[in-house]
Design a protein around this nucleic acid. Sequence first.
DNA 1: ACATTAAGTGATT
DNA 2: AATCACTTAATGT
Length: 215
Amino acid sequence: MPNDIRKTLEEVYGFLFCADLIDDIVRVGIIQEVSSGQMITDVGDALHGVPLLISGAIKVLRVDSEDNELLVYFLERGDSCAMTLSCFSGKIMKSSIRAITEKDTVIINVPMKEVSSWMHKYPDWSTFVLESFSIRLNEMLDSLDALAFLDLPDRVKRHLGEKVKLHGSTTLSTTHADIAADLHTSRVVISRVLKQLEKEGVVDLSRNKVEVLKY
DNA sequence: ACATTAAGTGATT
DNA sequence: AATCACTTAATGT
């Protein structure tokens, strides 16, 4: 099994991390396999380590006082979470986001104290941390733009496009209510928007399924 | 056949 | 674009 992990790690992170760093990750990392739709982290949870995504996808959500959600961005293979990376002091912090698996997902969890020493030990690691921040920040700006500048039909289209890319399929197993939750709106308005998109030939609708025809 | 959950719709703000 | 109140349709037991 450890050899297996090493191989996948090399596959996903090999071009970023030197062999020594990969050795260290294998040594201290804890493999976590999570099935789709599971909440991994909630707002207020203590962050004990840095998760490195091996496969699958995770959606990162913001939550309001009434427990309504808003999708911030997705994390994919090779990504990590900026939230946890920000604690390189080694101090344990609390999460300000909720993380839910979008598909069956494998992550390798690195304890916080290791991570902080790697910042000095491995230039590869500090580069990875800074690059991750940069990517996350840009993704967040994209989401902010969508939220501020796009009307709902366009936001729905954008969201569907992202899901298609993520799942590698134009057939999405999702409900109108799920989409509504991600976009922080109500199911009724999503149903209406989707109906309109169906008339325009953009999607094909059936129960628990959205077939994306144009994106 | 019945209950449950998803989706559609008109009216109102 | 949101909410209410209700209907219709699909699916599981």
